[in-house]
């Protein structure tokens, strides 16, 4: 089972490589990838440097070009594919069928992974993508239960990567427009959910307010913890009650079901968080490396260590973690 870690910059890439990642993933400095935030991501030269650093240590590098170009900006996505292919990266993580078609035709030697943004959640969809574009891996949207993941793997011949840790998307990735509904920009079109330019934080007599595109997502009492504001974790009135109508401000942690993921035949675990820090990548990579090694050695005896739990809890956004959709009761 491969450990795939986030690299928002060169320092994070080196931290991931040094602390046990089997692969790192990263993006160019624009909206061609789904973590398009100011100060984040790589120039071509930085990718070349990161590639050398990683390859010298036998770690793979994947480049995410996983947003959806439109006619007016199509050329930039095509150029991103060409640039990444030219750099000799180990795989491209793509979502759009047009971009996949382009990459498969122009660069048949390059490995293509279907991004989580590609929204393939079943054998027919994955088989379709494999048949047309020769995808070598699929990253599953966070919708299937563990049993469904296991069954899916039995029914496809494409290796499966799943999200194991980090921020939890509640909606099927690639088909969530909540962010653009409030701000005009979505992960698909802009490469970011809740783009920072549209987020407001304001202290008011009623409490601290966070808004996206002017819409009030949360108003919390002083001292209540605040994560990065996304619509799906906001608190609203529903049926006369004020509540987190979609999901609590929680993040994903699948460490305790690692033996089951291994037994299900999951090929790779992805750690979310290119927008986080070098410290985050260092700690999370260390813990997951240790855990995957322990689990691979002896799955029956696998137990999560208290020290792992503490480290992961300290770097989790929000106050709690969840196994999320892998656990059927979450649905």
């Amino acid at each position: 089972m491969e450990l795939v870690c986030p690299a928002g910059n060169l320092s994070m890439l080196k931290a991931a490589v040094d602390h046990g990642a089997d692969a790192v993933y990263l993006g160019f400095r624009d909206d061609t990838n789904a973590r398009h935030f100011a100060g984040l991501n790589f120039t071509d030269q930085q990718i070349a440097e990161g590639l050398k650093y990683a390859h010298d240590r036998r770690v793979k590098v994947f480049v995410a070009i996983n947003t959806y170009p439109q006619p007016h900006n199509w050329k930039r996505w095509a150029a991103a594919v060409d640039r990444a292919a030219g750099l000799g990266v180990d795989a491209l993580i793509l979502a759009d069928m047009g971009v996949l078609d382009y990459a498969a035709e122009r660069h048949p030697q390059v490995n293509l992974h279907l991004s989580v943004q590609g929204s393939a959640t079943n054998p027919a969809a994955i088989g379709f993508m494999q048949r047309h574009f020769g995808i070598k891996r699929v990253v599953l949207p966070r919708v299937l239960s563990l049993a469904q993941v296991a069954q899916l793997i039995q029914n496809i011949s494409v290796p499966v990567e799943i999200f194991g840790f980090g921020s939890l998307c509640v909606m099927v990735e690639g088909r969530c427009l909540l962010s653009s509904y409030a701000s005009g920009q979505s992960p698909n079109t802009f490469g970011a959910c809740s783009p920072a330019a549209h987020v407001e934080w304001r202290d008011t007599p009623q409490g601290q307010e966070t808004r996206l595109g002017g819409v009030l997502l949360e108003r919390r009492a002083p001292g209540e913890p605040a994560g990065y504001p996304t619509i799906c974790k906001g608190r609203y009135w529903v049926d006369g009650e004020l509540r987190h109508a979609i999901e609590e401000p929680t993040s994903l942690n699948t460490l305790e079901i690692l033996p089951k993921l291994l037994a299900a035949g999951v090929s790779a675990i992805k750690i979310e968080g290119r927008q986080r820090s070098t410290r985050y990548v260092t700690q999370v990579t260390q813990v997951w490396r240790e855990a995957i090694d322990a689990c691979t050695r002896n799955p029956q005896a696998f137990q999560t260590k208290e020290s792992w739990r503490k480290i992961l809890a300290a770097v989790s956004e929000g106050t709690q973690t969840t196994i999320g959709p892998y656990e059927r009761t979450w649905h």
């Binding site: 199509w74 979502a95 759009d96 047009g98 971009v99 653009s180 698909n188």
Partner: peptide, 24 residues
């Protein structure tokens, strides 16, 4: 997700006769 001409071309080859624009 049909956001661009290359996706449109690809789906036309498969038999696409009509598409509903993604709402965003």
């Amino acid at each position: 997700n049909l956001y661009n001409q290359r996706t449109l071309d690809f789906l036309i080859k498969l038999g696409l006769k009509r598409w509903v624009m993604p709402v965003e």
